[in-house]
Design a protein around this nucleic acid. Structure first.
Length: 356
RNA sequence: GCAGGGAUGACGGAGCGGUCAAUCGUACCUGACUGUAAAUCAGGCGGCCUACGGCCUACGGGGGUUCAAAUCCCUCUCCCUGCA
């Protein structure tokens, strides 16, 4: 359940998302723990950055260790030692990211996992079951995400239509599987709208998703290489069309500027691998949304912290840019960890600015 | 002392007459990364230039052979392996 608490002049709003394991204030950013762990970080370190919700992935956890195994081990919360809410992505993103190794049928998608070579069939029904078995608190509908490249583009309309049919199947299966669960113990279900860069399609899709019985609506299929201007134009277009009673979740966005823009256009939730991946690769955000590549020689003798305005663990302890550079150059995993913490905190601070 | 083998760019290591400023790896420099096939990937890496081309200096030192040498010959220096 989502409740809008305050709407502001700048277009942003703050609210409260209620899940079965607790409340989360919005706007919020969810770190990505694809396989049940935010790479290099312990759960309490993730929590210390201010992360209210963790995102995990259906596809990856299904392959290993498998949802049955996770369930046996007490569910994802216990398994991964994260007591707060967990949102699971449905596997829909892999339709896009593993597009060279998958086949879409009306029933679902058959993947050939690049790492293991094994075949995996994901359908809306299967995705629901897996997410419920994992113990997710916010379940994502299984969607069909197309890229914006020339060959993929022609599929946009088809993908939107299929996403809608799959959404109906997701909702039906979700209801069936949770029928006996008391409402307060039931996870939330979010639908995903698509439509590429086609405004009419986007609007149609948003209206469709919002007409179904979902707690939140996710904007999917953006941040897939369309460029900032195109993304912003779409967010601007969608802003007045959202149902204020539902949570608005922009999937896969994590660039600070994009976060701000989206928040000021009615978005409540985000997730992105950028803070952690960039962090591991040596890139951090500093005041002004500038980026610093810590591997650069320029930092070799720089005693200053990453960002003197930052209150993250890394900056608080005064680790110098020179030290971080040294750790990166010598390939020490501590480098990626300290930078990830900083980046995650950077995004949380942006969200906090817009909260009540 | 004798007999073999070897010395290549920051390092390791190819090349053994022309297509070699020299494969490749590491290191180094720079860039990318947006619901994680990503602690990954890409580019650069002798110097100079009025730069999709040109000039110079380079394969332990010196000297030769040749139209042409990192590549062949002589010699010196150093290293390794056997035998004394």
């Amino acid at each position: 359940m989502f409740e809008e608490v305050n709407k502001r002049q700048d277009g942003s709003r703050s609210g409260i998302l209620t899940t079965r394991v607790g409340l989360a204030e919005t706007p919020l950013f969810m770190p990505v723990a694809t396989r049940g762990a935010v790479k290099t970080l312990e759960p309490e370190e993730v929590a210390a950055t201010g992360a209210p919700i963790l995102l995990a992935n259906t596809y990856h956890l299904h392959i290993s260790p498998g949802e049955k195994q996770v369930k046996k081990l007490g569910g994802l919360h216990r398994f991964a030692s994260w007591l707060g809410p967990i949102l699971t992505d449905s596997g829909g993103f892999q339709v896009f990211s593993l597009s060279h190794a998958r086949k879409i049928t009306e029933d679902g998608v058959i993947f050939k996992d690049p790492a293991s070579g094994q075949q995996i069939l994901l359908t809306p029904e299967k995705s629901m079951k897996i997410q419920l078995d994992l113990g997710s608190d916010i379940i994502m509908a299984f969607d069909d995400l197309t890229g914006l490249g020339l060959t993929e583009r022609g599929r946009t309309n088809e993908a939107v239509e299929r996403t809608h049919r799959w959404l109906l199947r997701s909702v039906a299966e979700f209801k069936k599987l949770t029928a006996k669960t008391p409402k307060a113990k039931r996870p939330l279900l979010f639908g995903i709208q698509q439509g590429g860069l086609d405004k009419k399609l986007r609007q149609k899709s948003l209206e469709f998703v919002q007409s179904t019985d979902v707690d939140g609506v996710a904007i999917g299929g953006l941040s897939v290489g369309e460029g900032t201007r195109a993304m912003h134009a779409m967010l601007e277009f969608l802003a007045p069309l959202y149902d204020p009673a539902k949570a608005h979740y922009l999937m896969g966005v994590g660039e600070p500027g994009n976060l701000r823009f989206a928040i000021e256009h009615g978005v409540d939730m985000f997730d992105c691998v950028l803070p952690t991946r960039n962090g591991r690769h040596g890139s951090v955000w500093i005041t002004g949304d500038k980026r610093l590549n810590l591997k650069n020689v320029a930092h070799a003798t720089d005693k200053s912290p990453l960002d003197k305005n930052c209150d993250c663990h890394t900056c608080n302890l005064g680790y110098s840019r020179a030290y971080l550079r040294h750790l990166f150059k010598s390939g020490d995993p501590l480098a990626g960890k300290l930078a990830s913490i900083h980046n995650l905190r950077y995004l949380q601070r942006i969200c906090e600015e817009y909260r009540n």
